[in-house]
Design a protein around this nucleic acid. Structure first.
Lengths: 159, 159
DNA sequence: CTCAGTGCAAACCGTTTGCAGAACG
DNA sequence: CGTTCTGCAAACGGTTTGCACTGAG
């Protein structure tokens, strides 16, 4: 688990104690792939015999996010997900299936250019962006799932 | 307030009663500009002498979103914001200031093209996308605010 | 009249916090 | 040894829900 050392280095840089729990949480996140909920992380810790309180998991995740090693995501599920940034492209975006919740990553260099253009136009100093596409993944579509529009038959009309 | 009629039409199309409260909530949303929190909406209703329970506001907002007349946003503030889709371009994106919370809208036709390209590549059926740029608005930057990186000095190194 | 909507308050649920005891450095 | 962390449980805050009552059609 060499990645945990990066987090330990961060803690030392900040003058914070490196505790057993912090290392365990970091290991649980770094040794997994994908977008983990806090419950996922708690489960992984429990499976490896660690018994760590939820509060400590939350507190450690804050540190992991601050360190820049982990990204926090909110896909509108009512809770957050965490994804470590090692072993992957530094910038990527997400396809989110509204049916099964599967998250697929993709890269688009054009987005960075758009961010820069827009930021220049609005005198905005960008620190990060997010681009998410919601819809139906291939599996769900093949399974016959469809998303029907349930809104007005014609939104703009007869003001 | 002609826009409320669109919502009333939606309700009738769905066989749902058009109540005084639903019309009042719709009016409060349609007569405002920008991205309203539920508290904002409640305040607007109170200012016009309406006394409507929060539960009804939430329930009516669900209907407004389903009708397609209102968009729900989550800018990571811990609560949702609502924006009506009348009097504006149908598709737009947001610049969000991390300092003052101000939201600026912009349009980028290139995004639609990216969505289509990515969706084709992954056999994904897109229904909507969101592109948000977070950073510092011109006002906050001019006021001398800066956002300093507090993470690892060098994230990827010495595995 | 009947069925759905409303208001209130309680429940919910992910997350945060206060505090006494345990660990790091 | 002092300072910070941990675990527990209680608090928090936005949102949802149950239920008796009101109102729309």
């Amino acid at each position: 688990m060499p990645f945990v050392h990066l987090f330990e280095r961060y803690l030392r840089e900040q003058g914070l104690p490196v505790t057993q729990q912090r290392a365990a949480v970091a290991d649980a996140v770094f040794s997994a792939v994908g977008h983990l909920s806090v419950d996922d992380i708690e489960q992984r810790l429990r499976d490896s015999g660690e018994r760590i309180g939820k509060a400590t998991i939350y507190r450690t995740l804050d540190l992991l996010v601050k360190s820049g090693l982990v990204d926090e995501h909110d896909f509108g599920e009512g809770f957050k997900r965490y994804e470590h940034l090692l072993h992957r492209q530094p910038v990527h975006q997400h396809l989110i299936c509204l049916e099964c919740g599967k998250v697929t990553e993709f890269r688009s260099d054009a987005l960075q250019a758009i961010q820069n253009d827009v930021a220049t136009a609005y005198a905005f100093t960008p620190t990060r962006h997010r681009f998410e596409i919601y819809g139906l993944c291939a599996d769900c579509r093949d399974a016959g799932v469809t998303i029907r529009y349930q809104g007005l038959t014609c939104p703009i009309e007869k003001l």
